[in-house]
Each structure stands twice: as structure tokens, then as C-alpha cells.
Nucleic acid binder design. Structure first.
Lengths: 359, 359
DNA sequence: AAAGTTTGCTAAAACGCTTGATCACCAACC
DNA sequence: GGTTGGTGATCAAGCGTTTTAGCAAACTTT
């Protein structure tokens, strides 16, 4: 009788909102005791188990206790039981370092979050040892899967340990077919779109300043240029394809050669080259878009949108790459490991190309 | 007798390197069985416990088993026992969105990693609900602490739930003193350094194009400008302080006013304004740095380093902010919650200011 | 040779949660 | 009055570690 006493009294011990700020946290058991039920019951209430039969009254009592105590579930314990966490790992060679490629993180984060996952990131600067450590760490934390991404589009060799997890390559791909699922920007389509902006402007003689540095982008963007010309019934003229190092200086330096070509429209391998070219053209007293229509590639906001005049260009869909990578990882998007999925590079038209050419 | 048989045979069951790729993972117990020891022993070996007495021979046997089986510790289980994970959370309002502020992530990640922590990031785009969820998630994963960061330097109100964790504000601060530890860029020193670049160039009449938008940067950078002038014994002339919206257009638009001031040196609130100003000056047939010496602020690489001529400016130390935030969180740097710790903004001198003025 | 000390290792109790099996109770049915 | 069926909740095992207390054997010391 007396021993019973202890248990009756009032089951819900504390009724002042106990704001435990950073002592050791409230546990399921404490909630259970406060509500006068078993931990099993509390667990069932929390997880809204469909086929659990709990009286509405009890359910309410539990909820109150949870609020009262400021209970927070311990995700680690959950994970231990379930065997897999709600983490998605993102290994990046330099994504965080490189301004606009950071959008990959952003896209991945948003999409992951949307499906209840959190992003665990590691920037490896391309250091293989760091990379191995990072992957090991992610594996130890039982991530749902890993996104392996690079800051520019390129082939890559898949680290051995990566295969211990579910993974997807983002902005890169494995040269050996069937080795990995991957998602990359569609350079051909992008190059085609860029060229089409100029075609729509009424231009027929269009120069292309390509990069000197080998990369999928270099080949793809050139191919897109050719495709667009062909579709427009314009013969490809190799003489209109220049090459320069893909930065401001390169674009600036290419000015002279470009002017020799006697064209009024040019598509640059990237925005940085276009930026340099702007300077070169200006020095020659030429105005954009009247004397020369210019299109870039990448859509680096800081540059493209704010040059004078603003630069027409094509977006590298970094955000989408990150998001698509996550979807692919979670099996929400179709994906084969035979060929990388290509994400569209949308055209962004601005004032560097006049709407109607003075036909 | 016969029932024993099953257990004897060979204790170390598999001796081919079993590359379990993604079945259910090898556990401590399996390693223990393979090595013919208890799980306790394996644990002791793995964690290199100093005062554990394990025979060298046994130790080796365990290590072999670990390698053989490709064992990976389950970090969740570890965390469950220890009560705290090796995670540091980073809540950002838009850090991933904003190109150069991404360096905060980078700095935090590097520093965290250096101390054996991994970064758990959440981009909230300033959405309070998302923010609360993100913090809750981090709390549930028992993060060691949380970095709360903003993409530009500003005052902020600390979310209630953040207080349940150890936290540090990065690139922002709480207006109420004593409310939170924080680390921010030193705008005054930065403004002073920027001005000093021009002073070193031999200039005495220096204009400042400030932002129209209220912000700690606006006040701080102006103060730094005044400080530098005072230190150089030059009286402050309010007429030399212009104001414009802090972007390219703003800088461009300020050209005319600036030219009225009859100065040969100008310090812009940020690089984007400087970029616009470049255009304005060029249109007026003025050359940089001969007709006008220009200094910016922020050191947005894509802009500053690649304008023609390259822009002298002052760096916003984003990387350092992230790193310092982590150190502060871990208690490696001194920190009071009475005043934000200020990180130096280093000057970056480039060709937009001539080394010796034509005195 | 008895007592103490060191060495090498293990048993078992946590850590906080989930979940399938079980149970007590009560109303309804033949 | 025994059986069935439904309802509301609990029991207890287990997830993969860490860690403390303690045991047995092998050495020392007196």
C-alpha cells in the first residue's frame, strides 16, 4: 500500500516549463515517466505510427509532457536502431572555394532537405588523402549516400572507398562506362543555345572564341556551336573559331584576332573571356551590341549581369546539378550508370545582343 | 559433442579479404570473433587507450582482423555512448547562395576538420521556420555546437532554440551586449587600410563613395576613412563623401558627381561600385590610375583581380571568419560575449593605384 | 611458500530509441 | 458461460559501441 504511494501521487512531476538549457538532455524515458506511460507508448506517439492504438487522452498527455520537458529526440539513437541516417554526404574538390560552383551545395542542400535529409559536406581541395578520410567519415556516420562533385565539369576516377556507399557523381563523370551514375551540364545544348542567341539576333557570321584548355566543355561547346550553325543552314567555317586561355586576359588578348575576322557577332567560351573582350572592343572604339554582339557562357552573376551592357550568356545549372544529384541518389530520378544524365543550360538573354539585327 | 563442433572449426571464419560492398556492415563483434577476443579488447585496440594493457601479439591479431573484414566503426553508436558527436552545425541565411561568402563555409570546414569535426550545413535563405527546423535537426544530431552565419555583416536576433546549443555568430552580431559570442570583419580597420593605399600613393584629396544602405559596413568603412585621414593630418571634408547604391550601376552613376569634386583618388564602398565607376571614368576618357586612382572593398576575386587595370581593394576575410568561428566555438580562441571579435581585412594592392604619385 | 603486484583480458552495464510479441481488459456473440 | 474480437498499452530484445570493475595467470617480492 505505502509502496504504491510513491507511484501514484501526481504522475506528471514538473509542471513549470522546465527549460533545460544544456544540462544533459531530456530522454524518452523521462517523458514516459512524466506522462505516466511506457517508453514504447511515447515512441509510438512521437512517430505517429499508423497502426498503433493509443487513446486520444493518452496521446494528449504524452504530447503535453513532451512540450513541458522540451524533449528532443536523440537522432543518433534512432539511427543506431534503423541502421541508416538521414544524412547525405557531399564530397567536393573545391566547390566551396569556387564562387559560383557553390550553387551545387545549395541545390543539393535544398533538395536533400526537401526529402528530410541533411547535408554533410567535406571540401577536399582535390587532396586524395583528405578525400579518403572524408569518405570514411561519411561511411562511419552511415550516410544514406554520397555526392562526389567537382568544381568544373571533368572526367574523374572514382575513389575505391566511394563504392562502399551509394553514390552519384556531380559535375563530373567516370570515363569507363557503366562505372557510376553521374549528372553533368549539357555542354552541347548550351553551346547551341548560346549560338542561337546570336542567330536570333540576325547574325550569320558568328565567331567562337574557344578555350585552349582541354575539357568536356571545350569539345561540347564547340559541337553545340556547329550544331546550331548546321540547323540554321550556315556552313561551318573553321577560320571563325579562335582559341585563347579562358579568362579575362585571354578574352582581351583575342580582340585583335577577332577583329581581323570581320564579324559582328561572337560567342565566347565563358563570361570571363567576354569580360576581357569587352575591354578590348572598347579600346578599339567599338560598341556592344551595335558593332559587335557578344555572348558568353557560365552566367557568373557577378560578371554577366553587371557588365555594361549586361552580357547575354548561358547558365551553368549548378543548382540543378546539386538537386538532380540528390534526386538520383534517392532514386527519385531515373538514372543509368552507362551515361551521365545531362542537365540543360538555359540561355539568359541580356543587352549584349540586339534584339533585331539591322538586317 | 556434435553441437560443439559448430563453434570450434576455425574461429576466424573468412580468410579471403571479404570486400563487403554494401551488405550490412561488419560490426565490432564480428571483428572480435574473428580475432578470438572480446569486443572490449577490440574497442581498446581501436581507440589506442593509453592505459589499456594488451599484448602486442593480440593487438596485431585484432588489427589484422579489422583489415581483413574491412571493418568501419559505427559513429552513431559511438556518439550514443559519448553523448556528443563530432559535428559542428553551420546555419546560414544565404552563404551558399552568395558567391564569395561561401568562403565562410570553406574556412569553417577546414578548421573543423583540423580538429576532427565534420560540418553539417543548412542554408535557410533567411526563412525563420526553416531555420528553426535546421537548428532542431542539429540539436537532435547532438552537434558539438552551431555557427550561425549571415552572408553580409549585420546585426541579427539570436533564435531562441539556438541557445540550447553552444553557438557562435559569424559575420553578424547581437545588438544586445553580452548575448552572444560573435566574430565579424573589422570594417573600421578595413576602411582605414583602403584609404591608406591611396595615401601611400601620394594622394591627399581622396573621395569616398559610400553606400546608401544602412549597415555596419557603411558606418565602419566611413569611420576608417576618417581615421586614416586624421592619422595623416588631413582634415575631413564632408563634401568628398558621396553616396550611391552599392552596385555597378551605383558606381557608374556616381561618376559625374565624383568628377565635380576635382579629385584624383577615390575609395569605393565596394568592388562592384568600383567596377561601375571604371566604366564611367572610361566614358569620360579618363584613365586609371593616372587620371584617377581607385580603391574598392570586399576583394571579390572575379571582379577585383580581373578588371583592367586590376583593382586595389581590401579583403573581406570570409575564410578567416569561418575558421575563427570554429575556433571560438571549440574554445581555442579567447572570446567574450560582450563584444564581437573583429577579424582584420587585409589590403590587396593592385594596379588601380600608381605606386608613386607624380608628386 | 605466502603475499603482493603486474599483466592480459573479459563480463556486463550502459547510451536512447524502436518494434514485434504479449497481455489485460471488456463488449458482443452464439 | 465460454469464445471471439477489438482496444490500449507494456515487455523486452536489440542496434554497435564504450568503459569500469574484476578475474585468472604469471611474476615479484619478502
Amino acid at each position: 500500500m505505502i509502496s504504491q504511494e510513491k507511484d501514484s501521487g501526481n504522475a506528471a512531476t514538473p509542471d513549470v516549463p522546465v527549460r533545460k538549457s544544456r544540462a544533459q538532455p531530456v530522454t524518452l524515458r523521462e517523458v514516459a515517466e512524466a506522462a505516466g506511460v511506457s517508453t514504447a507508448t511515447v515512441s509510438l506517439v512521437i512517430n505517429k505510427k499508423k497502426n498503433a492504438r493509443i487513446a486520444e487522452q493518452t496521446r494528449q498527455r504524452v504530447k503535453d509532457a513532451i512540450r513541458q520537458l522540451g524533449y528532443r529526440p536523440n537522432a543518433m539513437a534512432k539511427t543506431l536502431v534503423s541502421g541508416t541516417s538521414r544524412f547525405i554526404g557531399l564530397v567536393a574538390d573545391g566547390v566551396a572555394t569556387t564562387p559560383f560552383a557553390g550553387q551545387i551545395i545549395h541545390g543539393a542542400q535544398d533538395e536533400a532537405w526537401k526529402h528530410g535529409y541533411a547535408l554533410l559536406i567535406a571540401n577536399t581541395e582535390g587532396n586524395r588523402d583528405l578525400e579518403t578520410d572524408a569518405i570514411a567519415m561519411m561511411l562511419e556516420y552511415k550516410v544514406r549516400g554520397i555526392l562526389y562533385s567537382t568544381w568544373f565539369h571533368r572526367p574523374t576516377v572514382v575513389p575505391e572507398t566511394l563504392r562502399e556507399a551509394d553514390f552519384v557523381l556531380v559535375n563530373c563523370f567516370s570515363p569507363e562506362p557503366g562505372a557510376a551514375r553521374a549528372v553533368v551540364p549539357d555542354e552541347e545544348q548550351g553551346g547551341k543555345s548560346a549560338t542561337e542567341i546570336l542567330l536570333r539576333g540576325g547574325h550569320r557570321r558568328i565567331a567562337f572564341i574557344n578555350a585552349t584548355t582541354p575539357a568536356p566543355a571545350r569539345d561540347g561547346r564547340l559541337q553545340g556551336y556547329k550544331d546550331a550553325l548546321e540547323a540554321a543552314g550556315i556552313p561551318f567555317d573553321p577560320d571563325l573559331v579562335l582559341e585563347a586561355y579562358p579568362d579575362q586576359e585571354g578574352g582581351y588578348g583575342a580582340t585583335e584576332e577577332l577583329l581581323k575576322r570581320n564579324v559582328a557577332a561572337v560567342y565566347c567560351y565563358n563570361d570571363r573571356m567576354a569580360m576581357g573582350l569587352y575591354d578590348g572592343l572598347r579600346e578599339n572604339g567599338l560598341s556592344i551590341p551595335d558593332d559587335m554582339a557578344v555572348v558568353g557562357f557560365d552566367n557568373q552573376e557577378v560578371i554577366a549581369a553587371h557588365l555594361r551592357p549586361p552580357l547575354s550568356t548561358v547558365s551553368l545549372p549548378h543548382y540543378e546539378l546539386g538537386a538532380a544529384g540528390v534526386r538520383m541518389l534517392l532514386g527519385l530520378d531515373e538514372a543509368s550508370s552507362d551515361a551521365a544524365v545531362k542537365i540543360m543550360c538555359p540561355a539568359v538573354e541580356r543587352a549584349s545582343v540586339a534584339v533585331h539585327s539591322p538586317a
